[in-house]
């Protein structure tokens, strides 16, 4: 199967600082939402900029739709940069026409599409307004339309949810899922693990310029899982972390999310805990993405 995007051993350093240190990953061709995850400063944006041919990698290759990336391939991509930017003095329709045209579309084909999209995201009455007169959220919507307008087969979105209110977050999520249902691919970067968990079916985890984990979300959970437990108890919950065999223990509202080492046994850990805790509940569950991520970062270090 060909990939819609394949990144092979891409590197980029700024002086002594290595921003991207040999990143490789592949995104399946159809109907996928791929999450490029990692903390701030991990190298997500630099990687995306190299994919988009905005900055040159020191070494490595990028393939789009199974071919070495070129201008023709880039025209089939819709890109939403991390730093949003529209021309403040242009009105909404002109702005979108311009974005559509530089992606090789004709004006007469663009106009009906623009009006359809503006209706869809509830901006129809603002079409003649200048961008600077719109609120931040509306500007984001305009920019997203600009990304989708030329019907790209692949969407690359850098932190698409940052600065959005919950209603617009939901709208964006809906649009991305619709895009996936049409058999196309979305790549989005985020540091919000919960959001990624709700949307993505494939992920790539980046930390300090390296991919530390990549693949289908379900397979990853299966591999890492089996050793994740949920614990509800009273007592000195902080001591749980110090028990042998405990990889990770995150305490939140009296609930402890436990991740055990592969060689550790759940019942054995429970036996030790009842010595100093009043345990109400202890059961096996699917690990959360955040747990997986924290573990992967520690394993890589």
């Amino acid at each position: 199967m060909t990939s819609s995007l394949e990144v092979r051993d891409v590197r980029k350093s700024y002086g002594k600082f290595v921003a991207v240190d040999g990143v490789s990953f592949a995104v399946p061709e159809t109907g996928t939402i791929f999450g490029l995850l990692g903390p701030n400063g991990a190298g997500k944006t630099t990687t995306i900029r190299m994919i988009m041919d905005i900055i040159a990698p020191d070494s490595g290759e990028v393939f789009l739709f199974g071919r070495p990336r070129g201008p023709a391939e880039l025209h089939r991509v819709g890109y939403l940069p991390e730093e949003r930017g529209l021309y403040p003095k242009m009105n909404v329709v002109d702005q979108l026409l311009f974005l559509g045209e530089i992606h090789g579309r004709k004006r007469r084909d663009l106009l009906p599409a623009i009006h359809r999209w503006l209706e869809r995201v509830d901006l129809a009455q603002w079409k003649k307004s200048k961008v600077e007169e719109l609120s931040k959220g509306m500007q984001q919507k305009v920019q997203l339309i600009g990304t989708l307008l030329h019907e790209p087969e692949l969407l690359i979105l850098d932190e698409p949810f940052s600065g959005l209110d919950p209603i617009n977050q939901e709208l964006f999520r809906e649009l991305f899922q619709e895009h996936r249902r049409q058999g196309r691919t979305v790549i989005l970067s985020t540091h919000g693990m919960e959001l990624a968990e709700r949307m993505c079916d494939h992920i790539g985890l980046i930390s300090r310029g390296k991919v530390i984990l990549t693949g289908g979300l379900r397979e990853i959970k299966r591999q890492v899982g089996g050793n994740a437990y949920r614990l509800v108890a009273e007592g000195d919950l902080d001591r749980v972390q110090e028990l042998p065999g405990v990889e990770q223990a995150v305490v939140q509202d009296g609930v402890v999310k436990l991740l055990l080492r592969p060689d550790a046994e759940g019942p054995e850990t429970l036996r030790r805990m009842v010595e100093f805790l009043r345990v109400h509940e202890f059961r096996s569950e699917e690990p959360e993405l955040e747990q997986i991520f924290l573990k992967a970062v520690r394993d890589a270090a």
Partner: peptide, 13 residues
């Protein structure tokens, strides 16, 4: 200064 250029530069030489 306006980062509008990031989108443009990925499609225009």
């Amino acid at each position: 200064g306006s980062r509008a250029v990031e989108v443009i530069i990925s499609t225009v030489k």
